[in-house]
């Protein structure tokens, strides 16, 4: 197998909240208060091959965005390593790390919140390549125009501000900004979630065209199973900061292994001809401040066994290329 473009191993992120003065005082008096630690991502292993699209699915609070932000270099991992083309980012000198980070860009969910409303489109797209000396300043306008054509925007609108564009066009600006520094890898965090269905389809098509034209690799984060099923080669499903199942997309959607994956796929709304009786899984996602012992899904799992509440199942290969973290796979 060729070297993966990106490999993360044992990646974790903890957010800690220190006690304030009153709480520290209360503790001194014997009250049971502790620093609260939120385990957003715990020990995630994931490799992405060059040119691949990996979909990352999960419900709110499962840590999918935190994982994406660590990969994009926006958050520092608490533990674990990120390997870019075989090199541990921590081993690189600052200049090398800088270069690697430039190759991984991010496209955000809400283009209105991620574009500076007081900058013209030409500056939004053109600033980064000029700063990073990829494009000399005098050629910036040309580069911006080319980028805008790439994402299907009229370069004539270069002097406009973000608010003068529609939602779909703004998302194209966000994509052009990410592409302006010639990345190899895009982290798309819910990049089509805020768009109307017909516009969403246009942007999905754009992502797929860019993948071919620019040989991009994607980590495609979404809560929308239909979108991920459509665009990704492999899909990882996260629950409470861990990957619970990872498999080639067609196989995962045809026959999910993990009970959570199964529940999630069953309940995803689909355009159907028959009316459905909804038979939901019970309960809600536990707080990541206080995750359950053992398998994080066991309080909601219809197949939970005594073992599930004591021992956490590891993510293991249950069939070639298919990974699942569930004790049920040991029964056979």
């Amino acid at each position: 197998m060729t070297q993966p473009i990106l490999a993360v191993s044992g990646l974790s992120k903890r957010f800690e909240r220190k006690l304030d003065v009153v709480e520290r005082f209360a503790r001194r008096l014997g009250a049971a208060v502790d620093d609260s630690v939120l385990h957003a991502v715990s020990g995630v292993d994931l490799t992405v091959a060059e040119g691949e699209v990996v979909g990352l699915v999960g419900e709110s609070g499962c840590g999918k965005s935190t994982l994406g932000r660590m990969v994009a270099g926006l958050l520092t991992p608490s533990d674990g390593a990120i390997h870019w083309r075989g090199t541990d980012l921590r081993d690189l000198p600052p200049a090398g790390r800088h270069e690697a980070n430039l190759k991984i860009q991010m496209v955000f969910q809400d283009p209105m919140a991620s574009l500076n409303p007081r900058l013209r489109v030409a500056d939004i797209i053109g600033e980064a390549p000029v700063v990073h000396r990829l494009v000399p300043r005098r050629n910036a306008a040309e580069a911006v125009a080319e980028m805008m054509r790439t994402v299907g925007l009229d370069p004539g609108y270069m002097r406009r501000y973000p608010h003068q564009f529609s939602g779909g066009q703004r998302q194209r600006i966000g994509i052009a900004r990410a592409l302006a520094v010639k990345p190899d890898f895009l982290v798309c965090d819910e990049s089509v979630a805020a768009l109307d269905v017909s516009i969403q389809a246009q942007i999905i098509n754009l992502f797929m065209r860019l993948r071919e034209e620019l040989r991009l690799t994607y980590l495609f984060i979404s809560h929308d199973l239909g979108v991920v099923q459509h665009i990704s080669d492999r899909t990882a499903i996260m629950y409470l900061g861990r990957i619970v199942e990872l498999a080639p997309t067609p196989e995962l959607f045809a026959a999910p292994n993990h009970p959570y994956a199964k529940a999630l796929l069953d309940e995803a709304p689909r355009v159907t001809l028959e009316k459905r009786r909804f038979a939901p899984i019970r309960g809600e996602i536990p707080s990541p401040l206080n995750p359950p012992a053992g398998c994080p899904f066991h309080p909601r799992c219809p197949h939970a066994m005594p073992r599930c509440s004591q021992e956490r199942p590891d993510l293991r290969e249950v069939a070639p290329g298919r990974w699942s973290a569930c004790h049920l796979n040991d029964a056979f």
Binding site: S198, A201, I204, L225, G226, H230, V271
Partner: peptide, 24 residues
């Protein structure tokens, strides 16, 4: 028809979606 065609799960995986051109 265009709205229904734009729904990803109703299209073949990986094939460009039949989106509605333009915007509202």
């Amino acid at each position: 028809r265009g709205l229904l065609d734009s729904v990803p799960s109703r299209n073949r995986r990986g094939v460009p979606l039949r989106s509605i051109p333009g915007m509202a």
